[in-house]
Amino acid sequence: MPHDAPHGHDHDHDHDPHAPAADLGDARSRWYEVASDVMRDMLVERQVLTAREVSRQIELMESKSIQLGGRLVARAWTDPDFRTRLLEDGKAAAASIGIPMTEAALKVVEDTPAVHNVIVCTLCSCYPRSLLGQPPAWYRNKAYRSRVVREPRQVLAEFGTRVPDDVEIHVHDSNADLRFIVLPMRPAGTERLDEAALAALVTRDCLIGVAPPRLPDVAAA
């Protein structure tokens, strides 16, 4: 997202198309930022969109959060029938508990004692944004995107997740129309937690598959 809010200025001012974009590590991203601004301003000028519609859409995108993913996971942990439906058709299952998605499909991949799943988009940064909002910066970085497909165990270890050799790693390259989340295993010691408390254990890293859900230290002690 190039700017936090639309603004009416023209583009005579100093956007250097070759200035590095520190957060994406790619100088060309600055060029696309300018192109995106110009396109947005033209659409507003020609009354295809209003500035208000643009900012409403930005607000909508920013209102999505990891908590919606946590709700799906906690429901799946506590309701076997919902878990089955979530694995069959993630988008339909999400809609059934009031969580609509705009992407074509949500594929939910389930961790088991024998399988650890991790998600990446090697080509860009495909991510279930209508469910979870924007992906973290590292998910968009070339280092993660290029390395996790070819050395997932090493990358996961850098996140503090050591996967035993007898557990298969399944890397899912989210390269096209499907969007993915991981259904992690419910941590031991959470038998007494209710659905809301379980949902709070689910972080963005859990849903991407780089870290398992953990009890807070206080509760684990």
């Binding site: 050395e151 298969e168 790693i169 399944h170 390259d173 390269n175 129309d177």
Partner: peptide, 10 residues
């Protein structure tokens, strides 16, 4: 890594 590690793609 493990010989049974896999990659899924569309």
């Amino acid at each position: 890594g493990s010989g049974s590690d896999r990659l899924f793609i569309e």
